[in-house]
Each structure stands twice: as C-alpha cells, then as structure tokens.
Write a protein that binds this DNA or RNA. Structure first.
Length: 641
RNA sequence: GCGCCGGUAGCUCAGCUGGAUAGAGCACCAGGCUUCGAACCUGGGGGUCGGGGGUUCGAAUCCCUCCCGGCGUGCCA
C-alpha cells in the first residue's frame, strides 16, 4: 500500500524532472526523521544540485511548484537543505491499513526453498550458540513464507562424525558400558553426554593410545555396522530426541531430518564424483603435497585469491571423501541435481520425517529446491564458498548463485557469566574478554538450563503482580514470556556481531526485550476489554475512519500508523538481506511508540467521539502491526501477563 | 602473510547505497500509579563516532593508511 504510493510519487517526480530539466533520474524515497517534516521525503534536489549546478532548495521549490499531486497527498513542502517532502492523507492511509492484509506477496513470486538450520552434533546437549542458529533459521522460514515462498526446513544430523565417535568411545571404552545400560540411562541423556564428551577429551590427552579408538569407531560409524555403530545409533537417537524437545520448547520444528549416515549409505558421493570428474571440475594430483588426491582448483575464482594452497582436496589419497566432497553431493541433492534420492521414514514419536537407507513408501517429495539456504555460523564461510564453487565448476551456475550461506557470528560468554558458571576464576585477573564456548571442553550454557531460568524468572515476575492465576495458566504464561524473551534476544542482534551472552542481560525483561513487546500488546487488549465492559464500541469500522477529519490525527498517533505501514518493506528487506534484526528493531520501535501514546492519549475517558475513534483506530492498526511482526519473530502474544 | 568481521555514551548496541539537531536499552539522577495494568512513561547528565590523511557544499557513513580485538586460511568437521 505504502510502496504503491511511493512508486506512484517516484514516477511522477521522475517525469517532472525529465520535463523541467531534461535529466534522467530515478528518485530515492526516504522517511523523514520527524513527522512534522513530512511522511515521505525525496532528496532528489540534493542529488541533482551538482549536475544542474544550482542550489538544491531552488530545484526543490521548482519541483514542488504545481506538482500534480494524487489524492492521497495532503501537502507538499520543501524542507531542510532541499528535501521535497510529501504529507499523506492520514485518514485515507489508516482506512486502507484496516482494510487490507498488511503483507501481500505478489502471486507466483515465490520460490521453492530448502532451508537448513540447527544441525547440532548428536553427541551432547544443545547450548546457547545452537539457539542462535535455530532461532535465526526459524524466523527466516517464517519471513520467507510470508513473502510467498514455499519453504522446506531441514535439520542435518551428523550421525557418523568424530564428535559422536568420541562419545561412543566414552561409553564403550572409558565407562565400559553395554548398550542396554546406555539405553537405560535416565534423562536428561544429553546432559550426561555433555559431561562424558569433555571427559573423553581429557582421557585422550592422558594417553595418545586412547585416541586410536576414535579412528576405529569413526570407521565403524561410517560403515554403519558393528557394535560401535549400534552404540552410535542409540546415542545419536537419544540425543537428537532431546534436541528436538528443546527446540519444541521454543516452537521450532522441522520438515525433515537429514542424516549423514543416509548420505553415506546411499553413496550420494559416487554420482557426484562422476559428475565432478567428467566435467573436469576435479583432477587427480600426481605430485606435490596433494599427490594421490582428487583436488578441485580454486585459483581461477577471485573469491579465493591469495590462498597459499589454491587447491581443495575432495578425495583423500586413501580414497576417503572429505567433508566438502560430501557436502557438494548433498547440495546437489537439495537442488534435485542428483539422480539419487533418499529413502524416508516417519519418526512417529517426534512427528517428523527423516532420511534413511531403507524407507517406507508414501512420503512427501523432498528437496528439488530453486534456492538453498544453509544457516551456519560464520566460521564455515570458507567451506560454504567451496561448495558453491563446486556447483559452479560443474556448470550449475544458476544453482551456484542460489546457494546461500546465511552466516552469523558466534555466541561467547560474557566475563561475568563465565565466572558465574565457574569457567573463569571468581575474581580472576583482569580478564575482561569474553569466553568462547567449547563442547569439547564442556564450556557453555546449555539451552535447557537457560530456558528453565527464563521460565523461573517469568514465573516470579508474573506472581509478583498477578496472584489469582491457576497453576496451568501460570505455566502457559511463563512459557510464553520466556520464549519471547529468548527469541527476541537472539534476533535483535545483527548477524555479524558476536554476542557476548550475559545471563543477567538475557533475564532482563525491561527495555529492549520480548516481554516489553508483549506488554504493549497486553495493554492494547486490556483497553479493548475495558471498552467492552463500559458498553462502548471496541472497534472502529474502516468507513468511520475514512470519514475522520484531519485534525484528529495527532502527530504521534500518525507516526505509529506510518510505522505499521512500513512493515511490508521491512519484511522484504529482512528477507532479501537476511538481516532479521531489522524486524526485531522495527517491532521495538513500534512498541515504544505505542507505550508513549498510551500515556498521552487515553481512550476510555475521551469524550470527543472523533478523537476517541482516531485513537481507537490507531490502536487497532498497532495490534495488527504488532501481531504480524510477532508472528514473523515467533513471539507468542499473551492476553495478560 | 593473506582474507572476512568488529572498534559509536560508563556498559550492550542501532545508524554506515554520504544529507535534516549522532539515536536506543541498561546503569545513574529527578519526576509520574484513587484516572485504559509502573514488565510502563516524562525529563536530565553523559559522545574528539579507534588514530591520521583525503574526496565533497556536506563524512559515523566513501577512499587511503595505521592501531586494537575476533574469526578464517587442513588429506578435522
């Protein structure tokens, strides 16, 4: 709606510039910082000043003179150094917002997207770093769907990797436990593995001999048979089950679990290998340090300029395939470029499809994406680039350009939090630096622990102000608040910023927080309830709004309405740039505006009908906008708190 | 060494396709609950936008250079 206004004004302005000055110009639209300056701003005159060798204000005034303004424009003014500013018809815009759905994707504009996220090694409990991944992935899936795409969410389980092997060694060789004993271990199983994993790390260091066990275990995992593989399956299964439960607490679910074991078992790589060989994308090196390896040259690509070794090993000299090799094959499958497909089985207990070697019929179609997005932390950028370069080398240029790495920075622990958890000495040396998490060392804050603490804090806050709640209602509410707090915390950070996780900050429900947003919604709903109790209408119709005189729209009311009108563009920008914090910040901005208005423009006591209706309409627009943003961010909106 | 990212208020961060008085939150100070719920609001103090140079009518934003911090650069994943 607003974007239609923008493009209409842009076109009119471009024509006018052409007519007056004979110059081609594609106008840029901005939103002025303050409402008294206008609603849409064109800095065209500032840009044209140089080429026309005239002062910008003069140009702007000439442009404004007799501007053929459409009916949605109330006033045109020249402001500042030479901005051409438009004031919109507030009643008209508000009426439209209340009439149409906020986000309407162009029909048939969407793509089939495979979105992979979470990808936690199935050998230990999830920690807060994994939460950043999962929350970003989940929010992205919602944003892409809202923009009209079909999204398949996959969670890749590396059930044949060294990390799992280490825990298998821990059970079999360090603890000397049998399969039945491991199966009988009580929950939380992933917590048990967390400790065991770091213990194995220390055990390896004690005696290099111990580390030999890792190699043989890894081989068995890859082959998929033998007692070690069996133990691997059990551990992986139990841990994944726990990860899924953790994610469900945050309302994060998946369409498909893809297992590395299936990629190996079905030998996806052999076909990819044939493709890579026949296109000349890789070649067998016969001397030098990579002698005997199949390598992919990277020297031709500018992205890899300056590398010491311009070749990437795909198949090792012992014939085994590297991680990148497997990943290229897997990426080909995602795009439907591999003749092979997985077999599938439905995991009843977890309510999710998963890949297998020998499956069952009747499964939905998976893969065959037009766009593939992998949510993986920034440290994997190099490898993700190589995967893309692999597709490029195979001649799949379109798919290469649609292989997107959604990279985000790490989560570390703030010094205070690290000390709190005993990872740093209590009042230790001036170590003001944050601490990197490490599964291997057992350093990190477990996801479930954090969620537990958030729920406890929520409970405390609720009961300090709301005594007559039932136990069930309290549970639901505490969960809703903690989910919002956590999800908002993870999304509000820009992706290329390292989060130094601080527990106290995460547990703060004031200011820039999920509960702050929820509270604004609760307040709005309350007003509706109170209006109903007072026998007053709780809604204004869009036609009533359209008839309101312009003077009822105070600047701060109108500012909030314009903020809602900007949601579609913000959403599109977030989806395109993969900068989801844009949405979190916009939601915050919106809630802030509502809280401020709440105190200045009471509805219940207002006796002037038109003013009350304008305020009520603003509230309706607000609830609509906040609901859309909360849905995108996955924040539940309670009706009280 | 090379590459990528970060350095903005005491702390955590927005702003960075150049443009309208550098903005939030936390913390601090002063106010506001018999009036739609104070998880809130209003006001205040606090900034050489890492340093230096350049381009421009105009630079936190673009270019060069230096400094500090993080990450990457494996026949590990």
């Amino acid at each position: 709606m607003l974007s239609d206004f923008k493009s209409e004004l842009s076109a009119l302005l471009a024509d006018r510039i052409q007519a007056l000055f004979g110059v081609e110009y594609d106008p840029i639209v901005e939103v002025p910082p303050r409402r008294e300056l206008g609603d849409l701003a064109f800095p065209a005159a500032l840009h044209l000043a140089r080429t026309l060798k005239r002062n910008p204000r003069g140009i702007a005034e000439e442009l404004a003179e007799d501007f053929p303004s459409p009916d949605f424009v109330r006033e045109i003014r020249v402001e500042g150094a030479g901005y051409l500013n438009f004031f919109l018809d507030r009643s008209l815009v508000t009426r439209q917002l209340l009439t149409e759905p906020l986000i309407q994707p162009e029909p048939n504009s969407g793509e089939r997207v495979v979105l992979e996220h979470t990808n936690i090694n199935p050998n230990k409990a999830a920690h807060i770093g994994h939460l950043r991944n999962a929350v970003l992935g989940d929010v992205l899936s919602k944003v892409l769907r809202a923009l009209g795409n079909t999204v398949e969410v996959e969670n890749y389980i590396d059930d044949t990797g060294v990390q799992l092997a280490d825990v298998v060694v821990g059970f079999l060789d360090l603890r000397k436990m049998r399969l039945e004993e491991v199966a009988a271990l009580p929950e939380p199983f992933d917590y048990y593995c967390w400790d065991l994993y770091s213990e194995v790390g220390r055990w390896y260091e004690e005696d290099a001999q111990n580390q030999e066990l890792r190699r043989s275990t890894l081989q068995e995992l890859e082959h998929g048979s033998g007692p070690r593989a069996e133990m691997g399956r059990l551990v992986s299964r139990r841990v994944v089950s726990r990860h899924l439960a953790t994610m469900r607490r945050l309302s994060i679910t998946y369409d498909l679990l893809t297992h590395e074991g299936a990629v190996l078992g079905l030998d996806f790589f052999s076909e990819a290998f044939d493709q890579l060989k026949s296109t000349g994308a890789i070649h067998l090196e016969d001397d030098g340090k990579n002698a005997g390896c199949w390598v992919m040259p990277l020297s031709e690509s500018e992205e890899f300029a300056g590398l010491e070794d311009p070749d990437k090993v795909i198949v090792r000299s012992d014939g085994t395939v590297t991680y990148v090799g497997k990943d290229i094959a897997y990426q080909l499958w995602k795009f439907g470029l591999l003749d092979k497909d997985f077999q599938y089985r439905f995991w009843e207990a977890e309510d999710v499809w998963e890949t297998t070697v020998d499956g069952e019929p009747g499964h939905p179609a998976f893969g065959r994406a037009e766009r593939v997005i992998n949510v993986i932390d920034i440290r994997q950028s190099y490898l993700q680039k190589i995967v893309r370069a692999g597709l490029e080398a195979l001649g799949y240029h379109d798919q290469a350009s649609k292989s997107i790495h959604f990279a985000y920075e790490m989560v570390t622990l703030s010094p205070a939090t690290a000390r709190q958890f005993g990872f740093l000495e209590e009042d230790g040396e001036e170590e003001a630096r944050s601490l990197e998490m490490s599964g291997r060392k057992g350093i990190g804050v477990k996801a479930d622990d954090l969620i537990d603490q958030l729920e406890a804090k929520s409970r405390e806050e609720i009961s300090s102000r709301n005594r007559e709640l039932s136990a069930e209602a309290l549970d639901v509410l505490a969960r809703q608040i903690s989910v919002a707090a956590l999800r908002f915390f993870m999304v509000k950070a820009t992706t290329n910023r390292v989060i130094a996780f601080d527990l106290d900050e995460a547990l703060n429900f004031e200011g820039d927080s999920g509960p702050y947003l929820q509270y604004s919604a609760v307040r709005a709903l309350n007003i509706g309830r109170r209006l109903g109790e007072a026998g007053l209408p709780t809604q204004v119709s869009s036609s009533q709004v359209g008839d309101l005189p312009p003077e009822v729209w105070a600047d701060d009311l109108w500012d909030l309405i314009l903020t809602v009108a900007l949601i579609p563009q913000k959403t599109a920008a977030a989806g395109e740039s993969l900068e989801l914090s844009l949405l979190a910040r916009h939601a915050l901005d919106l809630a802030q505006k509502f809280h401020a208005i709440y105190h200045r423009h009471p509805i219940l006591q207002e006796e002037d009908l038109e003013i009350r209706n304008a305020r009520l309409a603003t509230m309706q627009v607000f609830v609509q906008g906040l609901t859309v943003l909360s849905d995108l961010l996955g924040l539940p909106l309670p009706d009280r708190m």
